[in-house]
Design a protein around this nucleic acid. Structure first.
Lengths: 206, 206, 206, 206
DNA sequence: CCATAAGCGAGACGGTACGTCACGTCTTAGA
DNA sequence: TCTAAGACGTGACGTACCGTCTCGCTTATGG
């Protein structure tokens, strides 16, 4: 019982939906963001503007959906809602694992295409409380939860204080990287990543 | 010898400049940012659009200048370029001083007018590398320097590790607050501020 | 042998056809013409747009058909193609009969609903040569023929010149009324109708 | 005291105004009317759409203005408001003069460019009472007056009944030609023009 | 007396043009 | 000389309909 009313145009719907999101990602990744107009997206997707406006209320929402779809993997309809089960490496050495992950994050931000995409997303989220809430719920929290799972494992292994505030730990770890990237306040080096990991671990040592 | 060339139209210039910046601040503080147009600024300032474009290349630059002027105090022409000598309290108790400052910062962000202003600024900076550099030079670095002065005093008093990376310390302290505010990821409470101070101090204990 | 292929769905066909034409007439009569869209007609008729496009190539054609059906009376399919036998009154006094008819025509134009309908029809005909031809054949010529029958009777009675050009006579009679109405050049009074009759009769007196 | 408020941008204004009207005339004359869009006019005139909408409320009004400007000759600003003094030929032979004029009118309608232009104008006027009134005042009445001047001269010469209703005479003369053209009811031949003149003269013989 | 296939309502689709808004430039009158 | 005022060319906005298409349901026989 997938549809509740009206005929099921899901095939066409799905095709155009994917075309729109792919076009959005492509444009955001390769053009300066002010050139990413709804008209350009429609043209690139081979779609009428109305087809975009029928589904999303604003360019922000499209950009957000484009990013969301990316994170959800294949994201076909009827897919599992519990997500693609992100998980951090767990070699038993928390410091090493975190260094690996944080270095990878730093490198990701260095990719110009990804930089443009995430910068666009950040801009839209910063100026739209509704999108911000959806971002927290659909993207940030699941990811945080995966990270906290790794931290709990470290707590059990006695590598973190038993009463450590894991949310705070993650903030200490990631926020400085994010801010440095957003404000272009300095290079996102492996050294910086390592220093962050070390400091966070010191702050919450057992 | 206040003006260097031509007749003395500097009074009118300065008056209109101030009117433009004040109008920009007022609009940014009270309207949703997409309604802050150059035309609205010009109308509010009682100024022709061209007078704005003659001085700044884009709306971003005006918004930035408006914020910059705010931080520079009265910012009359010919004022001291070395700034208004920001300084953090120094009671001798680093933890107490930092808690005070960080709680104040958190409260500042809670003011809707300031929220809109700094959000606009952040948006413009995030998408314009030139503005970002100017922001670093004119606003961020002086402020960081003032904060680091206080930290060096703490180092001398043996309240921080002698080899502590002060930039990193400040990142740990401020970035989580900034990120939480920008993404509306949680409330900016005094408790959160205190927890940040405690964690940072633990990470760089002597 | 009413239908040539497939099962006979003529009842549904006929019902929807009538619904479309009725909806078109209703809309044209009560709305400004630019609001008469194919979508509005379909909605009002409780019909899909495709059902309209399956039968007529354009809105013009629908409007024309709606008017045509009106003139053909009940216009069920298979009806007599020779029409409903329009006939002008023939009291023996040509002047009196024409005054009666022309005054009635003038009054018809004064009805706002009829005004809108005929104005829409005129607009479509004026800009579409195919419709114009169909209009001449299906509506104008039969009516002209009925009028000419009355005129021939008058000729036989010696009330019109034996060699009078009856088409021209009718043009003199009706075209000024039509033009005055179309251009809103003046009121369509009984006096004006009478003056037209008198002038035409003088021009073709025996 | 030409302008009442604000600076006088009349040079640019006038240049763009002329460009718009010329482009409109060109497009209407050479394209099917549904392709004459405001965007096409703007593009052809090398003008922004807004410049059109700033001056006229709708396409109808632009088309009308384009036609009006044509009739007013050079129509520079500040020109004589009493018009270009249209006058009919007056050889003393009313019948001959009218035949000449009516034949010329018939030929004019046969020119495809003029046909399209006047058909567009007629369509717009037929569906807009405001334009219709302006048409009567600015175009129809001055022309009628010129024609009536010639008829009064004929009355004085005893070629028309002294008490003839000259408006009615003109309606008899021109309306049949107009209607035949508008409805494409028949060819606009010289013979038809002559027949109209003869009939009208018979109707209003002295 | 169903089985079936044509026709139907609904409405999404790729488009075009609409009329509006703000951009950044240009022009003018006047202080 | 520089300003305020504001018109200009440009281009994106979000909306309305166009005419086409695809769905699943209705319906009236013909097997």
């Amino acid at each position: 019982m997938p549809n509740e009313k009206g005929p099921d145009h899901s095939r066409r719907k799905e095709r155009s939906r994917q075309a729109i999101l792919a076009a959005t990602r492509a444009l955001v990744a390769e053009e300066p963001y002010e050139k990413v107009t709804v008209e350009a997206i429609a043209a690139r997707a081979g779609v009428g503007k109305q087809t975009i406006y029928r589904r999303w209320p604003s360019k922000s929402a499209v950009v957000f959906a484009a990013f969301l779809a990316l994170s959800e993997g294949a994201d076909g309809p009827g897919e599992g809602a519990d997500g693609p089960a992100v998980a951090l490496p767990d070699t038993g050495d928390l410091g090493a694992d975190l260094r690996l992950v944080l270095r990878a994050t730093a490198e990701e931000f260095a990719d110009p295409a990804f930089d443009r995409l995430i910068r666009a997303l950040t801009t839209e989220i910063a100026n739209d409380a509704v999108l911000a809430a959806e971002y927290q719920e659909k993207l940030a929290q699941p990811l945080e939860e995966a990270k906290k799972a790794r931290l709990r494992s470290a707590q059990a292994a006695g590598q973190l204080a038993a009463d450590a505030d894991l949310d705070l730990f993650l903030d200490l770890l990631y926020a400085p990287l994010f801010q440095r990237w957003l404000h272009r306040a300095g290079p996102l080096t492996a050294d910086y990543a390592d220093a962050l990991v070390d400091a966070a671990l010191r702050a919450f040592a057992p």
